[in-house]
Design a protein around this nucleic acid. Structure first.
Length: 201
DNA sequence: CCGCAGATCATCT
DNA sequence: GATGATCTGCGGA
């Protein structure tokens, strides 16, 4: 289990989003180690990206951690779910990368229980699902990705990486079309693609 | 298989 | 009081 070092997070946001595909997301819990390969990410490019929480700059308490050093953990609540991000870029450059899906590796019995005994394909194929499966909560807000109990380690080689528009940001103007979503080609745990409402010209 | 409505609550106005 | 970087169940094809 080799934890990915602090320096890794200094990559430019889009390169980091791509480099995260295939890494191992690990959570050491009282019930044992829960882990999965990251198979899908989305980049959010700071104050100029209409889809980012940090669009327009420093405004609310929720996004404060996005303005800190790269490698911080940014969690937030969406309806009843927790979503989890990797903070990227330097201090006062509030970029982040959303982890959208993982492929289950260790602790599968616990994950199945956390996901209400659903079929394996549905354990972690979405940002709210994977946090529930791995027991990730708002308690991790502001922690670091290179220190236990929640961290990222070296994972597997990926066969290929695809890109496309981000999901669930229909009201974000031109940003709807930016190809900031990355996933491992043909991996069955990637969340389902849904075409944007307004197709690109 | 596909699309849509409702859930449900922390966060922000 | 309004709003989601979502998920699930339900109804129809």
């Amino acid at each position: 289990m080799r934890i990915v070092p602090k320096e890794f997070y200094e990559l430019p946001t889009l390169e980091l989003a791509r480099a995260l595909i295939g890494k191992l997301l690990v959570h050491d819990t009282p019930e044992g180690r829960l882990s999965g390969y990251i198979v899908e990410t989305e980049a959010y490019m700071g104050p100029l990206d209409q889809a980012a929480h940090s669009f327009g700059g420093r405004k609310t308490k929720r996004t404060e951690v996005m303005f800190r050093e790269p490698g911080h953990i940014y969690t937030y609540q969406m309806h009843t779910h927790t979503l989890i991000n990797v903070v990227a870029e330097d201090v006062d450059e509030p970029h982040a990368i959303l982890i959208r899906a993982v492929e289950p590796v260790e602790g599968q019995t616990v994950m199945q229980a956390n996901r209400n005994q659903l079929p394996k394909k549905q354990w972690t194929n979405g940002p709210g699902k994977l946090t529930k499966a791995l027991g990730i909560t708002m308690a991790h807000y502001g922690e670091l990705w290179y220190e236990p109990p929640l961290y990222i380690a070296e994972g597997k080689e990926v066969s290929g990486i695809s890109t496309g528009p981000r999901i669930g940001i229909d009201n974000s103007g031109e940003a709807v079309h930016y190809p900031y979503r990355f996933w491992e080609t043909d991996n069955p745990f990637v969340s389902k693609y849904r075409a944007p409402k307004t197709p690109p010209k």
